[in-house]
Design a protein around this nucleic acid. Structure first.
Lengths: 191, 191, 191, 191
DNA sequence: AACTAATCGAGACGGTACGTCCGGTCTTGCA
DNA sequence: TGCAAGACCGGACGTACCGTCTCGATTAGTT
């Protein structure tokens, strides 16, 4: 019965946030700047996002959903493709600026931490589960290993290379995918 | 000639910072709170640390230097010991709160990024280099693999488990050390 | 041809405004609160009143027109009756809250200032003019004094007692009417 | 032991407030504008004045203390001088803009209302009391009339002429002083 | 009976000011 | 000179309110 939210405003907010994240970084991102860039009022932002953190999260993490990695026909190929997707996600300028910044605020906000985890962990783990099941079906692995460990093995090093070592992720998918494949294959035999 | 700095003040600042990091997290840490808790003036802080980030860095990251991991006699044992040390470092409450927070500020401050990298990457990589050299000497590996990759493989998953998956790191050293050992061994054979 | 305005809405707006003026004062009065109290939409208000000031004016000042004071048979009696009417007008809770508040906005809005003056000054001065003419006709005054001055002498002290001294206006009509009568009588003799 | 408040900051705030009141009026006065004009931070304002109202009050009402009106040798002369002082006070651009604006906020803040009354009523009434005592001593009045009434008779019409009738107060001191003198003299005889 | 056009409640919208909070700098008087 | 205390500037935060606009549903009065 009342006026519905304008979806163009939703988009304008998220777009402006992404642009400013890329330009000024997480610390340099201002709610007023987002409002001005999006040509909207601050109230329109706070009607949609309770805090700056939630807005950044929605703009840079949520929505940038990882598509399910394709079945490449081999475990090694699947792992390379998976790493490539994570690298692509984390090298997006907005996400690259937002994710480390958000991590600092997670401890203060359990609600945000939960959503953060859901998007960055739970959904990715589903994809990993499928990937491992396919490898078992193919006979490449005897039993599916612990999903959480594989997730950590895949996403952790990408994170480390990009955010901690601050190195280019070029060649990383091939390299990391191969190593993890070797580790899983070896573990499977010893199991 | 002039009055020397009071070392008790140095300690009081770092202690207060660590306590407040554990209590309120990185986002909830304020310079005024540190000064009040340490019963000192803010000027005394800024005489020692140029910015909040540097203070937090000094309190939570620096000083908690990783001791060189011991020679356990086997590559697998060395890797387990290395992971255990990284886990111990990152599970310290102050460090756990500080590190993700600091990462968000790295992009804004190249100077801090450099120091961050020096402590968290370069020094650890030196230890890893020794560890790998010993494995080659023992004949466990034919050639030493890329140090950066091994560093990413070791520290990344620990980071992921603690900060992203938010899981207990119990059992992680054993588990992760074993997997990485398998990966390195397999890669060495194929090389 | 089209749907006519609902007169119940008109009334609901003014009533809600008066109630909220009495409850929360001028500064605490918000358009949203008026709309909610009146169970109408804000558009319905702005279809009738261009600004908050005009709405308050219509609710608290306009409509509460002073009836022409009666001919009591003597100048002193007429003055007492006049003061009593002004006191009654200004002690109405809605008017008491609205008038000082509106005065603060007059400088920003010449249009409102004009209407304010018309209601609060011009109409009252007409009544005063009649009152003085009657006194001249009765022979109580030789010539009619300056109407503006008498208006200021009558309304000003009432204003001062209620809004500035914040005293009860009990007994004020008698007291003030008598004093002004004395002043006018004395001035008339010396003229 | 700590750094004391800078009195130049106190002055800069009040001066900027007065200037902006004269330029933009009460409604157009912004805390940010005051801070910018005074070249200070907003925190420095709020350290001294709890609210915008208190700041305006301090700038435009307080401090502009009425000096005790001089002894002119006659009651009529004293009254004329008193009215002249009130007129001067209320025609000051800053006070003229501030006082009606403040009156609208008095109902919301009893604390401010009390200070407002103290400055604008109590102190002026002291002066009036002396003035009336002198008249009694001179034999111009038999007994001193009610101070509150005289205060209302003096300040109310000035208020009405300036803020309600919106007329020039030129000639008002002479005119009003004379009328009030006549009223007091007549009342004294009939007492 | 269908059409038209202004009304209604609800509430989103842009804009702007508020008062609070911090980071980093500066100033005071004491030791 | 170092120190505790705390004032200082600058600037972002999240809230509140004004006056406008938009939605779908309701009413008249006209066809």
């Amino acid at each position: 019965m009342a006026r519905p939210r304008d979806t163009r405003v939703d988009e304008a907010i998220l777009t402006a946030t992404r642009e400013l994240l890329a330009e000024a970084g997480y610390a340099g991102l201002t709610m007023d700047a987002v409002a001005e860039r999006a040509r909207i009022g601050k109230a329109a932002i706070y009607r949609r996002h309770a805090t700056k953190q939630e807005m950044v999260f929605s703009a840079a993490v949520h929505g940038a959903d990882l598509p399910d990695p394709p079945d490449t026909g081999s475990l090694r190929g699947d792992l390379v493709a998976l790493v490539r997707e994570i690298v692509d996600h984390l090298t997006n300028p907005a996400a690259a600026a937002a994710i480390p910044g958000l991590m600092g605020d997670l401890s203060s906000s359990p609600e945000l931490a939960a959503r953060f985890q859901d998007i960055l962990v739970t959904r990715q783990q589903l994809g990993i589960e499928h990937l491992l099941d396919r490898a078992v079906a193919r006979g490449e692995l005897r039993t599916a290993p612990d999903v959480s460990l594989v997730h950590a093995l895949v996403s952790g090093p990408v994170f480390a290379v990009i955010y901690v070592q601050n190195r280019s992720p070029e060649g990383l998918p091939e390299q990391l995918g191969t190593v993890i494949h070797a580790a899983l294959a070896a573990s499977s035999q010893n199991a």
